[in-house]
Nucleic acid binder design. Structure first.
Length: 466
RNA sequence: UGCCCGGUAGCUCAGUGGUAGAGCAGGUGACUGUUAAUCACUUGGUCGUAGGUUCGAUCCCUACCCGGGCAGCCA
């Protein structure tokens, strides 16, 4: 007999005489003449109620079917006589495949997220985390579907890299050198990186953008979707040392096209998850964030606000608020400022664009015709309520001379970017792209407040268990 | 990295300068087409670690470890 998933059994349109189910016991309730078992196999949030009659020969095994045990049941799918569910299974054969004793940590009560993090090998069996990771899977699928349907090509950019893309953040070193006794150069003072595996200093990537630009300047529309690494000592609910990022890169595109794409993309992802993960989202709106569904629908309905950095600074200045960090043109917007803009002032997602040149990366395109001392670049950040920055992007500087000037401004050595400069030497085109933090998007879509709870096995400073 | 909060039973927490309690889980029994079932009884703790103050510390102090929050950095 072929196994039926709980999801499919619950969606049955007619009773079935013979059905085989495999899964884990969520709870068992014993009555005098039979036992109720709630069987969950992870295929969906809900479990299927199984009735095991005490007259059944296999009933002797029932005492071992504790919460957490894996079981196999074959029997009939019938309409339930009880009130809580449409279908239930009357067992004819019942086997406990793997027992779970009283030390099984998942109880029939609510646990704290902190406790569940410590048992990351078991938490996918909980309602909440089962739902989170089903949605994560669907969201990843939707990412590909969005870009593939638009004719974008998926590019695999390297995970080990020698370029510290944009100097953004500390990087993890990749080396095979003996750390106790590394080879030395320059009279024994410095480590001789020429003797390392790749013949030079290498790192885990912080972004695939620069390599994606190479492919955008060949295939026109591309995207990356893969792991990225930041060795920042960040202790916040929205930073992880290892996270996944989606980075589209579009040739013949300016900042406005980039912002259009970002908005369309975010809305597409929300709409897709809304349509395909309805049960899981309902669970989140019930137990995680009461306003989740209303907020998601609100975001779908409204066009995102677009606001230049200069306008944002004016709004913040006129807000009448007292800021922990003062607002002045030229300074970066702080979390409190971003939160005010999206949560209080506009009350919807906001794209802030044209940031001061001095605080942004070297590759961002200089805005033409800026007033002296007010030079900006074509950068944009998408801010959403509850999370803050979810997307950061820009139009790239395609003019060789301006790009070189930007590198001088940021004290970068041209030698390390020779291939990046070549893109401007040979057939350069205006192009733009952005990075979306996959986990941050997942947080937004599920209402889960901590990034550690939307990653199967989160890596944060000091933590790499599992 | 800075500031703040926390660490007491398997889990969630209360509590006191005189060495500890509840709910849930576990166990036993009763009851029941049950839904995180219900009821009764019950097992269970070097009160994060190491020092210090004190006649006496789980409680006060210091350091450290661990967890969490906020900020910075960003996605």
């Amino acid at each position: 007999m072929i196994r039926t998933l709980v999801k499919d059994a619950l969606n049955a349109t007619a009773p079935a005489d013979a059905i085989l189910l495999q899964g884990w016991v969520r709870t068992r309730r014993d009555a005098k003449a039979f036992s109720f078992i709630e069987l969950n196999d992870g295929s969906c949030l809900k479990g299927l109620q199984v009735i095991v009659d005490a007259a059944l020969p296999d009933y002797v095994h029932i005492a071992k079917a504790n919460t957490g045990a894996s079981v196999e049941v074959s029997g009939k799918l019938v309409e339930s006589k009880g009130g809580g569910q449409k279908w239930e299974v009357v067992a004819e054969k019942f086997t406990v495949l793997g027992e779970a004793d009283a030390t099984y940590p998942l109880q029939k009560k609510g646990h704290t997220m902190e406790f569940l993090r410590e048992i990351a090998h078991l938490r996918p069996r909980s309602n909440l985390f089962g739902a989170v990771f089903r949605v994560r899977s669907r969201l990843a699928y939707a990412v590909h579907q969005f870009f593939q349907d638009k004719g974008f090509y998926y590019v695999h950019t390297p995970i080990v890299t020698a370029s510290d893309a944009e100097g953004a953040g500390d990087m993890f070193r990749v080396t095979t050198l003996d750390l106790e006794n590394p080879p030395k150069a320059e009279g024994g003072k410095h480590v001789d990186h020429a003797k390392d595996f790749f013949g030079k200093k290498t790192f885990l990537t912080v972004s695939g953008q620069l390599e994606a630009e190479i492919f955008a300047c060949a295939l026109s529309n591309v995207y990356t979707f893969g792991p990225t690494f930041r060795a920042e000592n960040s202790h916040t609910s929205r930073h992880a040392s290892e996270f996944w990022m989606i980075e589209p890169e579009v040739a013949f595109c300016d900042l406005h096209g980039d912002m259009d794409l970002a908005e369309e993309f975010v809305k597409y992802l929300i709409r897709d998850v809304r349509a395909h993960c309805a049960g899981d989202l309902e669970f989140f709106s019930k137990f995680v964030d009461q306003e989740l569904l209303a907020r998601l629908d609100f975001v779908l309905d409204k066009p995102f606000v677009r606001c230049s950095y200069t306008e944002a600074v004016e709004i913040l200045g006129k807000s009448g608020k007292t800021w922990e960090h003062p607002v002045a043109w030229g300074d970066n917007l702080q979390s409190e400022h971003e939160r005010y803009l999206t949560e209080e002032h506009f009350k919807c997602p906001v794209t802030v664009y044209n940031y001061p040149r001095a605080i942004k990366a070297f590759y961002m395109r200089q805005t033409d015709g800026c007033a002296d001392g007010r030079e900006t670049v074509a950068a944009m950040d998408l801010l959403v309520p509850g999370i803050g920055e979810i997307i950061g992007g820009s139009q790239r500087e395609e003019r060789l001379d301006k790009l070189r000037a930007g590198m001088v401004l940021h004290h970068l050595d041209e030698k390390n970017y020779w291939w990046y400069l070549d893109l401007r030497r040979y057939g350069t085109v205006p192009h733009a792209g952005f990075g979306l933090g996959f986990e941050r998007m997942l947080m937004f879509v599920t209402g889960v407040a901590n990034i550690r709870d939307v990653i199967p096995f989160a890596r944060t400073p000091g933590t790499a268990e599992f």
